[in-house]
C-alpha cells in the first residue's frame, strides 16, 4: 500500500470580500444558526407527531399547561446558560429553588402576609446560596461539579430542616401569589411572562453588555481573560449569585403554584432538565459558547416532549430514562461536532 494521495496541495485561498448573495433559506438559517434551526425542526417534528397521535395535544388548554410547566425549568435553564458559558456548572439550582420556596412562604406567614417581604427573603437566601457556591469553588478550589453536587444535597437538607420535612405556610389568601399562580397578561400566564422577562434580561446581559463579553471571555480562555485584566473571581462569584437569584424567583413561582413552601416537591430534578436544555441548546460545556435563544428552544422542545409523552400515556419511569438519554445524546453530538478524538477522558 502506498501513502500517496492525489489531492492537490494548494489550500483554497479565503477570499477577502466574501459577500456572496446567498439564497433566502440559507440566509435565514445563517441568521438563526444551525443549532437553532435543527431545534426548531425537532420542535415541529415533536409537536406534529403528538398532534397526530392525540387530538387533545395541540389545544389552547394543553399549550397553557406546557407553558406553565416550562416556566420554572426555563428560568433555571436560562441562568444555567450563563453559568455554563463561564465554563462552570451549577447542579444545585433545584435545591436553591426549594430553599427559596420554603423561605418565601415562611417569611410571608411570619410577617402577617407581606408578599414583598416573602419574595425579598427568598431572593436574599438565593444570593447567599449562590455566593457560597462561588466562594467554595473559587477560593476553596473545588471543582464546580463537585461543589454544587455537595450543595445540591446540603441546600436540600436546609430546606427540609427549615420546613420540618413538610410543606410550610399558606399563601393563596394573598392577591399577589394568586396573581403569580393564575394571572394572565395579554392572554399569557404570569409565569410565562416572568420567564420572558428574565430571559430577555439575561440575553441582553450576555450579548450586549461588557459584562456579557467578559463572561464569554472567561469561559473561552480564562488565562487570556485574566491577563486582559478581568477580575475572574468577582465574575464567577457574581454569576453563581445570579443563579441563586433566578433559582429564588423559580422557588417563589413554585410556592405560588402549590400555595405553600415546598422543600423538595416540584424542584427536585430540575437541575437535570436545566443542564439538558442548555446542552441541547448549544452551550459548549467547556464554556465560551452558547446563548439564551438556543436554551429556550430546547426548554420548549423538552416541555413539548414531556407533555406529549404524558398525553399519550407513556410511563413516567420511561420519561426519566428518555431524559437521561437525551442529555447524553446532546453532549455526544456536541463533542462530535468539536471533532474530539476518542482517547481517554474527555476534555
Amino acid at each position: 500500500m502506498t501513502t500517496t494521495t492525489d489531492a492537490p496541495p494548494p489550500m483554497p485561498a479565503t477570499s477577502a470580500g466574501g459577500a456572496h448573495v446567498r439564497a433566502l433559506p440559507r440566509r435565514v438559517a445563517g441568521a438563526v444558526g444551525a443549532q437553532n434551526t435543527s431545534l426548531i425542526g425537532a420542535l415541529i417534528v415533536v409537536v406534529g407527531t403528538f398532534t397526530w397521535l392525540d387530538d387533545g395535544y395541540l389545544t389552547r388548554a394543553n399549550m397553557t399547561v406546557i407553558g406553565d410547566t416550562v416556566a420554572v425549568t426555563g428560568l433555571l435553564a436560562v441562568v444555567q446558560t450563563v453559568v455554563i458559558v463561564c465554563g462552570a456548572l451549577d447542579i444545585s439550582v433545584g435545591s436553591q429553588a426549594g430553599v427559596a420556596s420554603v423561605v418565601s412562604a415562611m417569611a410571608f406567614t411570619s410577617t402577617d402576609g407581606n408578599a414583598a417581604l416573602g419574595i425579598l427573603a427568598a431572593i436574599g437566601v438565593g444570593i447567599a446560596a449562590g455566593v457560597v457556591n462561588g466562594i467554595v469553588i473559587v477560593y476553596g478550589r473545588v471543582n464546580p461539579v463537585i461543589a454544587t453536587l455537595a450543595t445540591l444535597a446540603a441546600y436540600k437538607g436546609v430546606a427540609q430542616l427549615l420546613a420540618g420535612g413538610r410543606a410550610q405556610g399558606y399563601v393563596l389568601g394573598d392577591d399577589f401569589f394568586i396573581f403569580v399562580a393564575r394571572g394572565k397578561i395579554l392572554g399569557l400566564s404570569v409565569q410565562i411572562w416572568t420567564l420572558a422577562v428574565v430571559a430577555v434580561a439575561v440575553h441582553v446581559l450576555l450579548k450586549y453588555t461588557d459584562i456579557g463579553r467578559n463572561i464569554y471571555a472567561i469561559g473561552g480562555n480564562d488565562t487570556a481573560a485574566r491577563l486582559a485584566g478581568i477580575n475572574i473571581n468577582k465574575y464567577l462569584v457574581s454569576v453563581y449569585a445570579l443563579a441563586g437569584v433566578v433559582a429564588a424567583i423559580a422557588g417563589v413561582i413554585l410556592t405560588a403554584r402549590t400555595g405553600s413552601g415546598q422543600p423538595t416537591s416540584g424542584s427536585e430534578g430540575l437541575e437535570l432538565k436545566a443542564i439538558t436544555a442548555a446542552a441541547l441548546g448549544g452551550c459548549a460545556l467547556k464554556g465560551g459558547k452558547g446563548g439564551v435563544g438556543g436554551t429556550l428552544l430546547a426548554v420548549f422542545l423538552l416541555g413539548a416532549l414531556e407533555n406529549g409523552l404524558n398525553v399519550v400515556g407513556v410511563n413516567s419511569f420511561w420519561q426519566n430514562v428518555a431524559q437521561g438519554a437525551l442529555l447524553v445524546v446532546a453532549v455526544v453530538i456536541q463533542q462530535r461536532r468539536n471533532g474530539e478524538r476518542a482517547v481517554g477522558l474527555p476534555t
Partner: peptide, 26 residues
C-alpha cells in the same frame, strides 16, 4: 493558550480589551 479566544471572532478578540472604552452604560 494564554491570549486568544479561539472560537471568538477577530472583532471580539480585539474589542475585548477595550470594552470599558467601547461601552455606554455597560
Amino acid at each position: 493558550a494564554q491570549a486568544l479566544f479561539l472560537t471568538g471572532s477577530v472583532r471580539y478578540n480585539i474589542g475585548v480589551a477595550v470594552l470599558d472604552r467601547l461601552r455606554r452604560f455597560r
